[in-house]
Amino acid sequence: MPDLKQTVAEFGWPRVIIFLFLVALFVLAPFVGVRLDDSLTNVLNRFGQNAVFVLAMVPMIQSGCGLNFGLSLGIIAGLLGGILSGQLGLAGAAGFFGAIALASPFAVLLGLGYGKLLNKVKGEEMTIAMYVGFASVMFMCIMWLVLPFSNPTMIWGYGGKGLRTTISVEKFYRGVLNNFLMIKAGEHLRIPTGTLLFDALCAYLMWGFLKTRTGTAVTAVGSNPDYARASGLSVDRMRTVSVVISTFLGAVGILVYQQSYGFMQLYGAPLQMPFAAVAAILIGGASVNKASMLNVILGTFLFQGLLTMTPSVINAALQTDMSEVVRLIVSNGIIVYALTRKTRVAK
């Protein structure tokens, strides 16, 4: 059956295998005592939390800057926005959208600088991005301590100075999106409609952007910079545009994540987040220089599905708590696999 074989080949074997594995986990779950509706709620929640991060990978992949391992920079901008919004005492929808607005200038400025740096290191973007991510997280570890924030719910109880490692957003903007139009079915099933709609909106805007003149230029720059230059484009400018958008989406992403998860995590927390997003988009079938909305949606779903289902089913089956170990193996394994398969830039 050449037709089936070809369809599968186009879809990609890894995706088919992961998909089948995921289905198997869902089928298996009830037998080891994991409720299906619980699992579904979990998967949807995590999908909603993470989709914007994965989306943030798209512009830089398209412009030829590779995978954004320095997404932490955007996450930091988002954290700053969130904290400022809390400091100003904004709450609810005003708190959430206020946080995005307050994060924007940071995201844009950091993105501009980051873009400039990446333009200086063409060909080595991903390595440098990783350093940028790590360095900025470490730098912020100091800043979180010394920045003069004073809202008592955010700073350490003792000493009265320095931000806590985890700050509850309960009083700020918890569930602003998640609870919007939430669908409740039975005891356990909760569908975070608002978050999913917001993700969809972001994806739609990105899709639209890629169809504009600038979006087309960004893609062409990634596809063949010499061609783009001969067509009168400034390659560096287009790359910077993509980096700024990616960084901004990182900021939005962390705020979406917080309103669903319920906490802001400062200090070392932003360190690992880019990796999950990288793994997800690679599973979704993107290469280091081409990514589509389909890759984003599919990748987030498969990766987060795997990350939620594997530990819970395995824990229940083996009666031990290995969730963290399994999670690490799964996510890093996927990154390694995907990178070895996909780093060959077609040129």
Binding site: R213, N224, Y227, S231, G232, N289
Partner: peptide, 17 residues
């Protein structure tokens, strides 16, 4: 050429930009 893109893109890109 943009080898990885369609002929449409290749032909119309410069005029578009």
């Amino acid at each position: 050429l943009l080898l990885d893109e369609s002929l449409e893109w290749n032909v119309s890109f410069t005029a578009m930009q």
